[in-house]
């Protein structure tokens, strides 16, 4: 028996919107730790890891570890039927081949059940070791989304370079090239509007903008984004989900021939 009641049901709606274009089918894993997902995109270039900790749910019952295979587009379709203020409960019986999403309006005058078929997904689970990153950039998520969108109208790849001067996002394409430099800026009143750069070593890496743009679909989940870079590793683009956990995107770099 599994029963997870999430008062902020719209968090789940936002999570689905953030991952459904990157990943088609995925196993959601449920354990005493929380509700999680790890999946790669079809070309195995990017990986998404989601964690919603059990403490973040109003009610969390998970009698034994369960892995539920879901088509994310279908799940998103069902969650779109929940109101933004609705309480969402995820329910599944042991051994069942369906999952039920229950939506309750805040004043309990409307209750809806949406039952979705589960699927068997043979997915590869990867171990991601803790890493020391050469540079960690924390910036407003809307600013990062804007930069990715702007640069993708010029080129297909972005070079992210971190130096003492700041973080530079560069692209080049047929019509020309573009560079956006963001400097550390902690003087603004609100911490969510500041840019901080923690640099241990300068680093410069090249990534496909198509994936970066896809990651920015998670922008509604968090006002800030953290970009962790190391010269020999995939970049980690992390959106914290307040009081609940995170959604992390890992993207393998492009290297010169």
């Amino acid at each position: 028996m599994l029963e997870l009641r999430l008062v902020q049901g719209n968090l789940l709606k936002k999570v689905l919107e953030a991952v459904k274009d990157l990943v088609t089918d995925a196993n959601f894993d449920c354990s005493s730790t929380g509700f999680s997902l790890q999946a790669m995109d079809s070309s195995h270039v990017a990986l998404v890891a989601l964690l919603l900790r059990s403490e973040g749910f109003e009610h969390y019952r998970c009698d034994r570890n369960v892995s539920m295979g879901m088509n994310l587009n279908n799940m998103a379709k069902m969650l779109k039927c929940a109101g933004n203020d609705d309480i969402v409960t995820i329910k599944a019986d042991d051994g069942s081949d369906t999952v039920t999403f229950m939506f309750e309006s805040p004043n309990q005058d409307k209750i809806a059940d949406f039952e979705m078929k589960l699927m068997d997904i043979d997915s590869e689970h990867l171990g991601i070791p803790e890493a020391e990153y050469h540079a960690i950039v924390r910036m407003p998520s809307s600013e990062f989304a804007r930069i990715c969108k702007d640069l993708s109208s010029i080129g297909d790849t972005v070079v992210i370079s971190v130096t003492k001067e700041g973080v530079k996002f560069s692209t080049r394409g047929d019509i020309g090239n573009a560079n956006v430099v963001c400097r550390q800026n902690t003087t603004v009143d609100k911490p969510e509007e500041s840019t901080t750069i923690e640099m241990h070593e300068p680093v410069s890496l090249t990534f496909a903008l198509r994936y970066m743009n896809s990651f920015t679909k998670a922008t509604p989940l968090s006002s800030t984004v953290t970009i962790s870079l190391s010269s020999e590793l995939p970049v980690v683009v992390e959106y914290k989900i307040a009081e609940m956990g995170y959604i992390r995107f890992y993207l393998a770099p492009k290297i010169e021939d």
């Binding site: 270039v45 590869e124 990867l126 991601i128 590793l233 995939p234 993207l251 393998a252 492009k254 021939d257």
Partner: peptide, 14 residues
Amino acid sequence: GPIQLSITEFYRST
């Protein structure tokens, strides 16, 4: 142009 690496080249299956 540059070659796109795969995420599985960095992280191992568990």
